[in-house]
Simulated scan of single mutants.
Amino acid sequence: MPDTGQSFRFAPTPQEIETLALEALSRLPEPFRSYLSNVVMLVEDFADADILKEMEIDDPFGLTGLYSGRPFGQEAQTGDLPPTVHLFRRPLLDEWVETGVPLEALITHVVVHEIGHHFGLSDIDMHVLEDMVAP
Score class of each variant (00 low, 15 high):
55 M>F: 12
109 H>F: 02
125 D>P: 01
30 E>M: 14
3 D>W: 11
3 D>I: 09
6 Q>K: 05
61 F>C: 14
68 S>H: 09
89 R>W: 03
86 H>G: 00
38 N>A: 11
122 S>K: 03
57 I>H: 00
103 L>F: 09
22 L>V: 13
101 V>D: 03
90 R>P: 13
121 L>M: 08
68 S>F: 04
99 T>G: 13
36 L>C: 12
104 E>P: 02
66 L>S: 00
89 R>T: 03
111 V>T: 04
79 G>L: 14
107 I>Q: 00
113 H>P: 04
109 H>T: 07
98 E>M: 09
12 P>G: 05
74 Q>C: 07
2 P>G: 04
106 L>M: 04
26 S>C: 10
57 I>E: 01
70 R>L: 12
100 G>R: 05
47 A>S: 11
10 F>N: 13
40 V>K: 07
24 A>K: 01
42 L>S: 13
61 F>M: 15
100 G>E: 06
3 D>N: 12
52 L>G: 12
14 P>T: 06
129 L>M: 01
115 I>C: 00
29 P>K: 06
132 M>H: 06
49 A>R: 15
91 P>N: 09
7 S>T: 15
74 Q>N: 08
106 L>D: 05
95 E>M: 13
47 A>G: 10
49 A>Q: 15
81 L>I: 11
16 E>R: 05
6 Q>F: 04
52 L>D: 15
49 A>F: 13
11 A>M: 10
62 G>Y: 09
111 V>E: 01
99 T>Y: 02
82 P>G: 05
9 R>A: 13
5 G>M: 09
127 H>M: 07
4 T>I: 03
117 H>S: 02
87 L>K: 11
21 A>I: 10
80 D>M: 09
94 D>T: 12
54 E>P: 07
60 P>H: 02
33 R>S: 13
45 D>R: 14
101 V>L: 08
38 N>Q: 13
65 G>Q: 06
104 E>I: 10
76 A>Y: 03
8 F>Q: 08
79 G>W: 10
121 L>K: 02
76 A>G: 08
90 R>D: 15
62 G>T: 15
25 L>R: 12
58 D>H: 09
99 T>I: 09
86 H>F: 15
12 P>A: 04
33 R>H: 12
72 F>H: 14
101 V>H: 01
60 P>M: 03
64 T>D: 11
90 R>M: 13
68 S>I: 14
78 T>F: 05
70 R>W: 04
36 L>Q: 08
133 V>N: 01
64 T>S: 11
98 E>F: 04
47 A>L: 08
129 L>R: 00
135 P>S: 07
27 R>H: 13
27 R>C: 10
64 T>E: 11
24 A>H: 01
131 D>I: 04
96 W>N: 07
91 P>H: 07
121 L>D: 06
73 G>R: 07
11 A>S: 09
103 L>Y: 08
5 G>C: 06
124 I>R: 02
61 F>E: 14
104 E>W: 05
52 L>R: 11
21 A>V: 11
9 R>M: 13
106 L>V: 07
36 L>E: 10
6 Q>L: 08
124 I>G: 00
90 R>K: 14
76 A>W: 03
110 V>K: 00
42 L>T: 15
56 E>R: 12
43 V>D: 02
64 T>N: 10
130 E>M: 04
123 D>A: 05
87 L>W: 11
18 E>L: 10
53 K>M: 12
91 P>L: 07
33 R>L: 14
18 E>R: 07
84 T>L: 01
62 G>K: 06
50 D>Y: 02
